[in-house]
């Protein structure tokens, strides 16, 4: 059903990729200068990058991990790693996309670890008390439930779903961030949607 749309998106993304490669850069002149200043350790430039992107990084971490006491610490780690790696930033993507990539690398192992732990916990709960009751009907309860459902999604599928649906990125951008082929991303997105539907129906 969604395959037509996905194929079109993949073709469109590939066309976009070649266009970007031709143009050679994803940064505006102001951003290029900002990055250059940040590379030599100028605090004001680092501060500007942090102020511009901290909301994006924090929101992304929250969507990936849910309510978590470690989000502030992880935000700091992401920016510290980004600032230390500015020398390696070639300007082949926007700063936002590059920060998504660092966030994905920073959280990848943590997500897998937590997912495994959560799966064991759920299995034990199920063994002791049976399946949980149906969700409530109010909006707030439904959104809490949404968070709970999302946490049950496998980490690799969750990453793709969050980047595509919540962060509004294209398949091409998600593929660059996760460093996987677009076809893999498309496949993961389809599986994420199916798995979410199954989780909701269950």
């Amino acid at each position: 059903m969604l395959e037509h749309v996905e194929n079109f998106a993949i073709a469109h993304a590939q066309a976009g990729e070649s266009a970007a490669a031709e143009s050679g850069t994803f940064l505006s002149p102001e951003e290029r200068l900002l990055v250059a200043r940040a590379r030599v350790g100028e605090h004001r430039a680092l501060r500007q990058i942090y102020s511009t992107y901290q909301a994006q990084v924090r929101a992304h971490l929250y969507r990936l991990l849910g309510q978590d006491a470690e989000i502030d610490d992880l935000t700091q780690i992401v920016f510290a790693r980004a600032f230390n790696a500015l020398d390696k930033f070639q300007g082949n993507s926007t700063l936002g996309t590059w920060l998504y990539r660092i966030t994905a690398n920073t959280t990848h192992n943590l997500l897998r670890q937590r997912f495994r732990r959560e799966r064991v916990k759920t299995a034990l709960n199920w063994f002791h008390s049976g399946r949980t009751a149906n969700v409530g009907s109010t909006r707030v309860e439904a959104r809490d439930e949404a968070h709970r459902i999302l946490q049950q999604l496998r980490p690799d599928l969750r990453e793709v779903f969050v980047l595509y649906h919540y962060e509004g990125l294209t398949l091409q951008e998600v593929s660059e961030i996760l460093e996987k082929p677009i076809s893999t991303i498309g496949d993961r997105l389809t599986r994420a949607r199916k798995q979410l539907r199954d989780l909701v129906v269950a």
């Binding site: 680092l46 924090r58 439930e145």
Partner: peptide, 29 residues
């Protein structure tokens, strides 16, 4: 309803601002 909530996504807490933002930036350094 549940799928709608999943696709809409969790509501995100506000970003750091003012003093908190300043402290976080120094912690990053």
């Amino acid at each position: 309803r549940a799928l709608y909530a999943v696709y809409e996504g969790p509501s995100v807490p506000p970003a750091a601002s003012g003093m908190r933002e300043e402290k976080e930036f120094h912690a990053i350094l």
